[in-house]
Amino acid sequence: QGYSAYKRHTLTRPMSQPAAKKPKVVGNGAAASQDVQVVYAGMPGCFSEKAAKQYFNIKLKDEKYATSGLRSVATVFQAVQDGVAQFGVVPVENSYSGSLHQVFDHLLEFEHLQIVGEIGCLEEHCLLSLQTVSDKSMLRAVRGHPHILDACSRYLEALEKANDSEIRCEPAMNSASACKDLTSTPSIEPTAVIAPFEAAEIYDLRVLERGIANDKNAETRYIILGRAMRAEAAPAAGLAPGGSATEIPMFKSSIVLALSNVEGSVFKIIAQFSTRNINILKVETRPAATANSRQPVLSTSPRHWDYLFYIDFEPSRSPQTNKNLISALSEFSMWMRDLGTYQAHSNGLVVSRPDWSILDTASC
């Protein structure tokens, strides 16, 4: 089946995840024991590794650190909670394709972890293939993570039309594993992968085309996981926000809470932020029944269509205001958990306004 059929049937199904076991290191496992250990989901050359290095090159200027790839997002959470690594880096949201829901579920499941940082990374998606494939017109299949295949959907559809043949899309756990599989077990049909530009050198692949994403300015937000720690412990870990008196960094706080399914419950929560002039940055909902099966948090059994609310907000500079906010939220919710307060980071790109003139306004 071509890309259009793949989009209808495959992208709507979650990829199967193996059960979490003791992490298997697939990256640099020979790091010195005194180095800060950082884990990510994937293999060398994947987008998550790039994000990890970009973040810790800034935050741990005077400390050595080592990155290691694990086979899934779940094993990253498990490794940090078990103390195998001090920090984990996982993608949580893409500016084009939206949130990665499994990450929110894991934040609830692994109760001893908190978000200690974040970083927004611009990601260039490239079409890579074996050196024997000299032109993209030869391609019959493309591999990549489902979110990445979706983020490059327009290019893949155009490639089908240009080649006048169907392009079979094959989901992969991550971009780097797709590269490794392609080189270790070459497909009979000419096949490409969508991966970072740097992966071409690591896996000796040919770059057929660069910048193939639907949104050339797409940004993926990664969160940095660490074991729950006191605020005063952050500087020793190199993760405390810096900044001078004239350059105050923006902070972000994340919480998750459960609400009674009654009229006015959402309004009462939102009102607590509004009355204190606190800006809500993001609200994400997840089914309470699914979350409760992983980590029971509710005293009563949730029903279908009951939800947990994950909220990111910009905390007040007044500690007392923040304390009053948390107290009020606790009063109006059935249950609540603090997921961490950390320095916010984004490339801050201004997205160009859409050209609405291309639409037939008479049909709106």
Rank of each mutant, 00 (worst) to 15 (best):
M334H: 03
A79C: 03
G120D: 00
L205G: 04
K61P: 03
K282T: 11
V256D: 00
M336A: 06
H112Y: 14
L156M: 04
T341C: 07
A30G: 06
H106R: 10
G144V: 02
V351Q: 10
L339R: 00
G340I: 02
I280G: 06
K24L: 12
L149E: 01
F197P: 02
T12A: 15
S301G: 09
E189M: 06
V89C: 08
Y55S: 04
G42T: 08
R227L: 03
S346I: 05
I326L: 13
W305S: 02
I194H: 04
L349H: 13
G340P: 09
N347T: 00
R168K: 06
E189Q: 12
A289V: 09
S301K: 14
P235F: 05
A291Y: 04
S68D: 07
R276S: 12
F197V: 01
D150R: 10
L208I: 01
E118M: 04
P235E: 13
Q320S: 14
G29R: 05
H145M: 03
A162Q: 13
Q272R: 13
S254Q: 07
E160M: 01
I148F: 11
K136I: 08
F87K: 07
V38D: 00
A271T: 03
K50C: 06
Q1V: 09
E331K: 15
K268W: 06
S318I: 12
M15P: 04
S299G: 12
E331P: 08
G2Q: 00
M43I: 05
T12I: 12
Y6L: 03
Y307S: 15
K268V: 04
K268R: 10
I58M: 10
P44W: 10
F267N: 07
G29I: 04
T185A: 14
S165T: 15
V283T: 14
L225F: 01
T75M: 02
G243T: 12
W335M: 01
S134K: 08
K22E: 15
A151R: 15
P241V: 10
R276G: 10
D135F: 11
R353D: 07
Y6P: 01
S352Y: 06
I188N: 15
D215M: 07
V103C: 01
R227A: 01
M334L: 11
E49V: 03
G88M: 02
E263P: 05
G226Q: 00
M15F: 12
P196M: 08
T185Q: 15
Y310L: 02
Y307I: 04
A288D: 05
V256Q: 01
S327R: 01
Q37I: 04
L127E: 02
I326V: 08
R8S: 15
L208D: 11
D215G: 02
M173W: 01
E93C: 06
V350S: 11
E209V: 08
V262S: 11
P319S: 09
K24N: 09
Q86G: 09
A291S: 08
Q114N: 11
E93T: 09
I358E: 04
A178F: 11
S363D: 10
H101G: 13
Q102T: 14
L208P: 07
E170P: 08
L11A: 14
D355I: 08
V297I: 12
C46L: 05
